[in-house]
Nucleic acid binder design. Structure first.
Length: 477
RNA sequence: GGCGCCGUACCCAAGUGGUAAGGGAGCAGUCUGCAAAACUGCGAUGCGGCGGUUCGAACCCGCCCGGCGCCUCCA
């Protein structure tokens, strides 16, 4: 049974959905004013894997991931570039899909935008005022945290402990320094919508409450996001939602750790971030390979902890994947050995169980990967003895099946080496094949000098040769 | 000041009371004309430090050291 670490309780708990076999999942997406970096990728990937694993476990998952498309930073960016906010948000929503697509992140079931839910947000804000949990001043509406006794239960903070104004001046008009905006009056030139409190736009937190309630209902199963959202964003969402509905909001709160560079959080303000597209552009490998390498890297650490991004870590991820894809290639080849798949099935079954129990343990992807690595070793060993065509097919299928849960191992062909640069050192597959024929003949004549020369020549072009027992060779680049 | 995360071998990384998974690198070996790949063997008497609880602790408790994050927007 799946256990998840719930930030709300600070414990690992068995996961039980409200409705049997159905899961309603909401994840905070991104504010679309710039390209996504690896940190965004990690978050997206964690919840993509959670969704995949829930589906693998037989649940029907309704997965909602929003886009914040009305925000100060978007307005600022639009002004800087002299374009409309919509031009900015459209551009970066498209970029989001493109970048995440390369990482194999599946689109959510619903991807709502804040601007499409104005009525819901206005209604929710109105309800909070009516209930006395929010107040209205000069066209702005604030949530009254003092009126909500449970405030701080997610982030485990007490209002008295919060050092308001530590880094930002407190708005004097607010009743409590921690009161946050539900609705902001708009200045000239800013996007605005009509409301009972005058023309304005919603605060950040209210959109997630409105969209999650709209698409998943007042109480749903899982709410996720990066750890930096625990406070104040998710704390505020709980206050608004529970305050308005009087019901429980999300039951399980899941938060992923940060990607770091040299032990420091990757963030815009520190300027130490790499965008996803930047990494693909700079990568010396093909797009498919780069995507899977990145994906493997991001899943090789438990989602809750920090993850240090480095070239070295990326190279290692590639190396490990090559080990897997090398095996897959060998599994696809016919070989003339004696067949002996006796223990194969039990090895696969054992792996499947180990994989599931790893994933059941708070989505322990590193442990799940370790199970696959164990299987890799076992299958390699068995392949050395000899596997039937069926056995090889079964093994391949097991890797595909379990890999799919992590979004790995789905490539038909793995490009081992570096991206071909236009007009530089290109050699076609058929040219390689003819070189290999020549080399094979040289080997037959025991002309090893010639054979080695050909191998060296191909090596120089980034082609690695592996000689098979039957005298033929396989190659990879 | 408050809240929280993290510290496991050369590197990455699991393990939340029962005696240190897995991978990478390295070294040695098997196979090979030689390679490559694969396989086999070797590698922490110890899990930041010091105390404590326990028959037993990397895992629980206390103190300390070090790194990081949040308390403004941030995945």
């Amino acid at each position: 049974m799946l256990q998840l670490f719930n930030t709300l309780t600070g414990k690992r708990e068995p996961f039980e959905p409200i409705e049997p076999k159905k899961v309603r999942l909401y994840v905070c997406g991104v504010t679309v004013y710039d390209y996504c970096h690896i940190g965004h990728a990690r978050s997206a990937l964690v919840f993509d894997v959670l969704r995949r694993y829930l589906e693998y476990s037989g649940y029907h998952v309704t997965f909602v991931k929003n886009f914040t498309d009305v925000d100060d930073k978007i307005i600022k960016r639009a002004h800087e570039q002299g374009v409309t906010c919509e031009a900015i948000t459209t551009k970066y929503i498209d970029a989001y899909h493109e970048d995440m697509g390369k990482l194999g992140v599946r689109p959510a079931s619903v991807e709502p935008k804040a601007t499409e839910h104005m009525a819901d947000m206005i209604e929710l804000t109105g309800t909070l005022i009516k209930k006395g949990l929010a107040y209205h001043i000069d066209g702005d509406v604030y949530f009254d945290v003092a009126k909500y006794p449970e405030y701080g239960r997610l982030s485990k903070r007490r209002l008295e402990d919060l050092q308001a104004g530590a880094r930002v001046d407190v708005d004097e008009r607010k009743r409590h320094p921690m009161d946050f905006a539900l609705w902001k009056s708009s200045k000239p030139g800013e996007p605005s919508w009509p409301s009972p409190w005058g023309a304005g736009r919603p605060g950040w937190h209210i959109e997630c409450s409105a969209m999650s309630i709209r698409h998943l209902g007042e109480t749903f199963d899982i709410h996720g996001g990066g750890m930096d959202l625990i406070f104040p964003h998710h704390e505020n969402e709980i206050a608004q939602s529970c305050g308005a509905t009087g019901k429980e909001f999300a039951r399980y709160w899941i938060h992923n750790g940060f990607v770091q560079i040299n032990q420091e959080k990757m963030s815009k303000s520190l300027g130490n971030f790499f965008t996803i597209r930047e990494i693909f552009e700079k990568s010396k490998w093909s797009s498919d390979v780069t995507g899977e390498v990145l994906r493997f890297f991001l899943l090789s650490t438990h989602y809750h902890g920090p993850l240090d991004f480095s070239d070295r870590a990326i190279d290692e991820a590639k190396q490990v994947l090559e080990g897997f894809y090398g095996l897959f290639n060998r599994l696809r080849e016919r070989d003339g050995r004696t067949e002996d798949d006796k223990s194969l099935q039990s090895v696969i079954d054992k792996t499947r169980e180990g994989f599931k129990s790893s994933m059941d343990t708070d989505l322990n992807t590193p442990m799940a990967i370790a199970e696959l690595q164990l299987l890799r070793g076992e299958v390699n060993r068995l392949l050395g003895v000899g596997l039937s065509a069926q056995g090889r097919q079964d093994a391949l299928q097991a890797f595909r099946e379990l890999g799919a849960v992590l979004g790995l191992f789905q490539l038909d062909r793995w490009e081992y080496g570096i991206k071909a640069e236009p007009g530089h050192n290109q050699i076609s597959g058929s040219e390689i094949e003819s070189k290999l024929v020549e080399r094979r003949e040289a080997k037959k004549r025991k002309d090893f000098t010639r054979a080695d020369a050909i191998r060296k020549e191909l090596n120089a072009l980034g082609i690695t040769i592996e000689d098979k027992p039957d005298g033929t060779s396989r190659w990879k680049r």
